[in-house]
Amino acid sequence: MINAEAVIFYIFVLFVLGGGFFAIFSEQNKNAVTSAFICFFSVGMLMFSLELPFLAVSQILIAAVGLTFLFLMFLILTENKNKTAEKPSSFVRNVISLAVVFLLVVLIAIFIKYGSFSYEGINLNCVMPSTKDISTEMFINYGIPFLFIGLILTSALIGAGVLMSDIKNGKRGNS
């Protein structure tokens, strides 16, 4: 019996895999960015279907919208001179890479299906954490890792600003 949950799941899976496929194999960069946005957004919707709304919203806001904006800014800044930069890659190289990756997928799938991975401990009826629980957990038990990530992000922001200001001021020559 087909249920709505399975239909919605497979629709989003179609968007995830299709978006990822076209993001890699599309010829034009703008199509690749659009396909990547569809892929990231659909991954966020799959997280919604897993009943993880906080993680799904983070995935959609940060990964889908934010990164797509960054990619589009990069395209706007590099579009004028870079229209002919994309070269067709070797057919044999593509076929060998595809075969190796397909073999890897098959091996990992066989391991998960028949290996030592145990499905014991699955608990779908657990209590969902509220926003207060997540914030309490984030700032008490995971305070130091998030502080570390915040420091890295701040240093990356400062470094990116310094690099861009050097480019604008012409301090870095054509070496």
Partner: peptide, 26 residues
Amino acid sequence: IILFAMGILGLVISKNLLKILISVEI
């Protein structure tokens, strides 16, 4: 797993830096 494999495939066959970054993100 399929998404991860797609990312590896994109890393191997892409020649554009933008597509490499998209592959890493996938």
